[in-house]
Simulated scan of single mutants.
Amino acid sequence: MQSDSTLRITDLREEDSAEYKIRFRTDQTTWEPTFPGTTLTVTGLQVKVTPATVTEGQKVTLTCSTTCTLGNNPTYVWYKNGHVTNQSTSLFLNPVSSEDAGRYSCAVEGHEDLHSAEETLTVTYGPKNTSVSVSPSGEIVEGSSVTLTCSSDANPPVDKYTWYKKNVTSPKASGQSYNITNIISEDRGEYYCEAQNGRGSMNSTALMIIVAGKPTSFVTAAVGSIVVVLVLILCLSGFMWFRKKASKSTSDTRDTSENVQGDSSPVYDNISGMAMTSTAAQTESTDNQDYVHYASVHFSGSKNQEVPLYSTVQLPQPQIQDEDVQYAAVKFSRPSAATR
């Protein structure tokens, strides 16, 4: 009896690579060929970068290769960092730049789901975008400290920083940061840094440092005097306001006391804004007599209204304000008999 046997492998993988043989078995016997089996080699696509490490400005070639026969001039789809970037048999970068660095893979057009392994393209370059920053920013007060920091993009990273002051030949310092303590007016000027690595060097743009002098003692004293004057003005204003309010309150109390006075005996009262004085002393000066006034006081409920009552009032000197006049409030109790 004669028959055929077929083995079909789908979704082929590299681990399917092996030597395959056929064995024939019946109920009575088993037959196995003595000649070699069929060898199956499974391989994937592979990206080759020539050269593997390239300096910016040079050229580089990326090829997608396989040991399998794919027909004449197959088209490859190229991926950079997982995104489609080109479709061609080979990828040429001339000249290469730092932006071309990344991870590359390829696939055969029509079989985009079968990517090759990623290969990294490394591009080396000298320092770029070198700049200087300052802290604190703005005008620097004499006697304080300031820190200058240099930054630069480079591959390999910058391995040497040097600081210079414009119009000064010798370098001021080295290192990524330059700290100036107890700064003085002579430190003002333009500063820049130089960044270096194995591929080159680059200077930053100059940064101007402005140093302001310390405030003089005269200015400090003037500021202190102004503050003291302002405080005194505020205190005096508050004092006058409270004094005026207290005077108004005393006047209101006097008016209220006069309204509630009842029947009482005649009372004589001599009121002076300063001290009690005699009638003879009041007449010594003609100027003082101009400010002497008399008032007739009548009590509505008095039984002896036929006798008028007088009160001598001496006002204070003209230079004293109205608010300084002293008032006396007198409350009368109702006696059993009128007295003088």
Rank of each mutant, 00 (worst) to 15 (best):
Q2I: 06
L7F: 15
I9E: 05
T10H: 04
E15Q: 10
D16M: 01
D16R: 01
K21H: 12
I22E: 06
F24A: 11
T30S: 11
G37C: 05
G37W: 11
T38S: 07
T38M: 06
V42H: 02
T43Y: 00
T43L: 00
Q46T: 10
V49C: 07
V54I: 04
E56C: 00
T66L: 00
G71T: 08
N73R: 11
N73C: 01
G82N: 14
H83F: 10
T85K: 14
N86R: 14
Q87G: 04
T89D: 11
L91Y: 14
A101M: 09
R103F: 08
A107I: 06
V108T: 05
E109G: 06
E118F: 09
T120R: 11
T122W: 05
T122C: 02
T124D: 07
S133I: 08
S135F: 09
G143P: 01
S144C: 02
T147K: 15
T149V: 06
S151K: 15
P156Y: 12
P156T: 07
P156R: 09
D159C: 06
K172S: 03
A173W: 06
G175F: 06
G175N: 07
Y178I: 00
I180N: 05
E186K: 15
E186W: 04
G189E: 09
Q196L: 04
R199H: 13
G200E: 10
S204P: 13
S204C: 09
P215R: 09
V223M: 12
V227W: 07
V227R: 08
V228L: 12
L230P: 08
L230D: 03
L234T: 12
C235W: 15
L236Y: 13
G238I: 14
F239D: 04
W241K: 06
F242K: 10
D252G: 01
R254P: 00
D255L: 15
D255H: 11
E258I: 10
Q261L: 10
G262M: 06
S265W: 10
Y268T: 14
S272H: 11
M276D: 04
M276Q: 04
A280E: 13
A280M: 11
A280S: 09
Q282H: 02
T283C: 09
N288Y: 14
D290A: 14
Y291L: 12
V292P: 01
H293K: 12
H293M: 11
Y294M: 12
S296E: 09
H298I: 06
H298D: 07
N304A: 02
Y310L: 09
S311L: 09
Q319Y: 14
I320G: 02
D322Q: 07
V325W: 15
V330H: 13
V330A: 00
S333C: 01
S333A: 05
R334D: 07
P335C: 00
A338N: 12
R340F: 15
